[in-house]
Computed example of a mutant assay.
Amino acid sequence: MGLEETVEDKRGLVLVIGATGNVGRNVVSRLSELNVPVRALVHNPDNADLPHGVEIVCGDLSEPETLERDLDGVKTVFLVWPALPVGLAPAVIEVLKRRVSRIVYLSSMGVREERVQQVDPINEFHASIERLIEHSGIGWTFLRASGFASNTLNWSQQIRSDSVVRWPYGEATRSLIHERDIAEVAVRALIDDKHSGAKYVLTGPQALTQIEQVQTIGQVIGRQLRYEEVSPEVMRQQFLIHMPSQMVDGMLNAWAEFVRTPEPVTHTVEEIIGRPAHTYREWVSDHAGAFRA
Rank of each mutant, 00 (worst) to 15 (best):
V214S: 08
A256Y: 12
V104R: 07
V100R: 10
M243T: 02
L208M: 10
R30C: 05
Q213K: 11
L79T: 00
V111A: 04
I211P: 06
K97F: 04
H267I: 00
R144T: 06
R166N: 10
D181P: 06
V28F: 04
R180M: 05
V74L: 12
Y200C: 05
I138E: 12
E130C: 05
V119S: 14
T268S: 09
G147W: 11
G21V: 03
V265Y: 01
P276F: 08
R180I: 04
A189H: 14
V42S: 07
W81D: 06
I221S: 13
L3Y: 07
G59T: 02
V265W: 00
W283N: 02
L34P: 03
R223G: 02
Q158F: 02
D162L: 03
E229K: 09
S62P: 07
P232F: 12
S29P: 00
S163R: 14
G147N: 12
R39L: 08
I241K: 14
S136M: 13
D72G: 11
K75W: 02
F142G: 11
E184V: 00
D192N: 15
S32I: 05
G87H: 05
H287M: 12
E4G: 05
E5R: 13
F291Q: 01
G170C: 09
K199P: 02
H135G: 13
D72M: 06
T20M: 11
Q238P: 01
V77Q: 03
A19T: 00
A186R: 03
G59H: 14
R144P: 06
V38P: 00
P276Y: 10
S285V: 13
A254R: 15
D192V: 09
